[in-house]
């Protein structure tokens, strides 16, 4: 049985279609990365899995049950970290953690203390005095000390500093070693790359690609740079070549896996003297689906995502 299985999920808000026939499967015991910029429909999907929103069409099963109808028994078995945690101004962080624990009939106190220490959170501060990262920690601790079978994490590390991000990754690996299933939504590619067994990429309310990173790489284009002494014009006639750039004797391009062999033979016939072949990174995979930068900012949502994504990853890609 899979932890989550969704097929043909549709959800609209007024005229805006947030999810448009989304399919997603999370196997038991795996960490599943759910990748896409804000506004692509990640949070909407997760909220449907939690029974906060009702699906317009499609079938959704969480741990074999209907998330809208079987809320209470289902939620005993799952825990959630929202994308933007908001705390009660008058309650301390510790009280908030215990509130969530009490609502679910008890927390693992030992695990809770461990996490408080590992994430260096002071639980005696009032809700409105925490920074964003610390609010995030409160929700992470509440979720991870609940012994839930399925963890649903919506951009859990936004606002955490790099040290805490590393600690968080260790904790997620620990959860996986206990056989827990994790659905990790994120737009931080490095995090997904480091943690996820399988990945689904969502775009405009649809999952456009799913599989392990290896599988995705084998399906995707390979980046090639080479030095040749002949004329590279022939390359332009080859099928499956993209992003071709010619700088004197240097050529750069990316090529489909089935045309890689042909491309190599063309290069070797033109006096190839240097060659770099790099497998596509997750960023490349992601950008192949989001090739048109305007896609990142079309949908309503957030101001932070689109620019930061391109600053960090777009520049690295160009290097």
């Amino acid at each position: 049985m899979s932890a989550v299985s969704i097929s043909g999920l549709v959800k609209s808000f007024g005229r805006f279609k947030a999810l448009d026939g989304l399919d997603l499967g999370v196997e038991e015991g795996e960490v599943h990365g759910f990748l896409g910029p804000n506004g692509a429909g990640k949070s909407t999907t997760l909220r449907i899995l939690l029974g906060l929103l009702r699906a317009d069409a499609g079938t959704v099963k969480v741990l074999g049950a209907d998330p809208w109808r079987d809320v209470v028994p289902l939620h005993r078995r799952m825990a959630y970290v929202p994308g933007d945690v908001s705390l009660w101004p008058s309650l301390t962080g510790g009280e908030a953690i215990d509130l969530l624990g009490r609502l679910r009939g008890g927390l693992d106190d030992k695990r809770c203390d461990e996490l408080l220490e590992a994430l260096e959170l002071d639980p005696t501060k009032r809700g409105h005095t925490y920074s964003k990262g610390n609010r995030q920690k409160v929700a992470i601790i509440a979720a991870l000390s609940s012994n839930a079978e399925l963890l649903i994490l919506d951009e859990p590390t936004s606002g955490l500093d790099p040290l805490m991000e590393a600690t968080f990754r260790e904790e997620i690996r620990w959860e996986r070693s206990l056989g827990r299933s994790v659905l990790l939504s994120s737009h931080i590619l490095a995090e997904v790359e480091a943690l996820a067994d399988r990945i689904s990429i969502i775009r405009k309310g649809k999952v456009v690609e799913t599989g392990s990173l290896e599988q995705m790489r084998s399906r995707a284009r390979t980046n090639v740079s080479a030095t040749i002494d002949g004329n590279a014009a022939l390359l332009t006639t080859l099928p499956g070549i993209a992003d071709l750039r010619i700088e004197g004797h240097r050529v750069h391009f990316s090529v489909d896996s089935e045309n890689l062999g042909d491309a190599m033979s063309v290069l070797s016939h033109h006096g190839m003297s240097a060659l770099t072949v790099s497998p596509p990174s997750l960023e490349d995979l992601f950008l192949q689906h989001y090739g048109d930068p305007s896609d990142l900012s079309v949908e309503h949502d957030d101001e932070q995502m689109a620019p930061s994504f391109f600053d960090r990853h777009g520049r690295r890609r160009a290097e």
């Binding site: 009490r102 639980p123 009032r126």
Partner: peptide, 25 residues
């Protein structure tokens, strides 16, 4: 972000449920 009436740290543990939370809020 702070008032002249200061906020003090509070208890590290709590025992409220939904009823207690509603009463507290």
């Amino acid at each position: 972000g702070l008032g002249l009436i200061p906020t003090r740290p509070g208890p590290a543990r709590g025992r409220v449920g939904m009823w207690g939370l509603t009463a507290k809020l």
